[in-house]
Every structure is written in C-alpha cells, then in structure tokens.
Simulated assay, not measured.
Amino acid sequence: MKHLQRPVRRALLVVHVAVSVAWLGLSLGLLTLGLTAYTTQDPSLTQAAYRAMKVFADWLLAPVALVTFGSGLVLSLGTPWGLARHRWVWIKFWLTLATAAATIFALRPEIAHAAAAGVPDSSLVGAPVVSTTAYLFMTAISVLKPWGLTRRGRHLRESTARQAPRAGRAARQGQFS
C-alpha cells in the first residue's frame, strides 16, 4: 500500500485514537455496570445494569471495535511503521483482532442473555477486566514502542541499506556523464 499523505494520515490517526479511547471507556463503563449487577442485592438494579450494558453492546461495541481495527490496519499499512515490521504493531494487530472478535461474538451475546435473565453473572465482570487490561496494554505499547523490528522488518531494513549505496553511486555517476 502506498504511504498516506500527511493530512490523511493525521486525520486517520485522530479517528483511531478517538475510537480506541472510546473502546477503553466503553469497557470501563461495562465493567462498572457488570460489578454493580454482580454485587448488588437488589434484583431490579441487577436487571437495570444488564439492560444498560445491552444498550451499549447493541449500539456501540461492534462499531467501535470495527472502526478501531480498521483504522489501525489502514494506518499500519499506510505508514512506514508497517503491519509486520515492528513487534509492537504486530502484537497490537493481533490483540485488537482477538478483542474485537471476542467483543462481537462472545461478549455481546452474553450481555443479551444476562439482560433477559436478570441473574448476576461473573463473566460480565471478568470479560471487561480482560478487555480493559488488553486496551491499557495496547495503549502502553503504542506509546513506548518496545521490542524492535520483526524478522520481516530486519530483512526490509537490510535490503534497503544494501540498495542505498547503489542508488547513491548511480546518481553520482549520472551527475558526471
């Protein structure tokens, strides 16, 4: 994929950061509601918390997860970071894919079931804990960019370094012809 032009890249980066932060906030909100539903002794509050979770799950979870994944994928393919050049990008890609799939195919149906049953469910505390931890981890590696290049990234860097002296020599020879 061709590198994105600066204005496009910056706009896409704003979108990616905004929806990623929204996904983290949504996860914290679901955790709060899940804890409330699980720990309260009031059945009507349990029911209300699960219904609120269902509203978030029905309207926000899938779109936020998919836009986060899509914008991150386009950014990785359209910038020098690449998708498989740096370990932190590669790990973020797979974690985002896994959490998006778990959100859409496991968490949403579980929330719908809990909203219908109205019975405390510990998995609706555990799932948001796991997702929040994953999103915080992905945020940290986005900022810190640890671990260096992947094998593919090292190979690309070496091949570029080998080609650079040849390109410079050809350009110099062209100057004196």
Rank of each mutant, 00 (worst) to 15 (best):
95 L>V: 15
177 S>Y: 02
121 D>T: 00
96 T>K: 05
38 Y>N: 14
46 T>M: 12
137 F>S: 06
156 L>R: 08
142 S>G: 15
42 D>I: 14
166 R>Y: 07
90 W>P: 00
48 A>C: 09
127 A>P: 07
107 L>E: 15
157 R>L: 01
159 S>C: 02
165 P>E: 09
32 T>S: 15
56 F>K: 01
97 L>F: 13
111 I>K: 07
141 I>L: 07
172 R>L: 11
98 A>G: 11
58 D>Y: 10
52 A>R: 12
78 G>S: 06
111 I>G: 06
173 Q>C: 08
6 R>N: 00
90 W>M: 15
40 T>F: 07
119 V>R: 02
106 A>G: 04
25 G>L: 15
31 L>W: 09
53 M>G: 13
117 A>L: 01
31 L>D: 04
62 A>N: 10
109 P>D: 09
65 A>H: 11
18 A>I: 13
55 V>H: 07
152 R>S: 09
35 L>H: 13
56 F>Y: 12
119 V>H: 09
67 V>G: 05
5 Q>A: 00
16 H>G: 10
84 A>K: 10
82 G>W: 04
130 V>N: 01
140 A>L: 06
90 W>V: 10
59 W>H: 13
55 V>Q: 12
128 P>R: 02
103 T>H: 10
20 S>H: 09
175 Q>G: 03
154 R>D: 01
3 H>V: 04
48 A>K: 13
48 A>E: 02
170 A>G: 04
28 L>P: 04
67 V>H: 07
95 L>W: 13
137 F>L: 06
52 A>S: 15
126 G>C: 05
49 A>I: 12
24 L>M: 12
22 A>F: 12
122 S>C: 04
67 V>W: 07
174 G>K: 11
84 A>N: 10
66 L>H: 15
153 G>N: 03
44 S>T: 15
6 R>I: 00
176 F>M: 07
13 L>M: 04
122 S>M: 00
87 R>N: 08
14 V>T: 11
160 T>P: 04
114 A>M: 03
108 R>W: 07
118 G>Y: 06
38 Y>A: 15
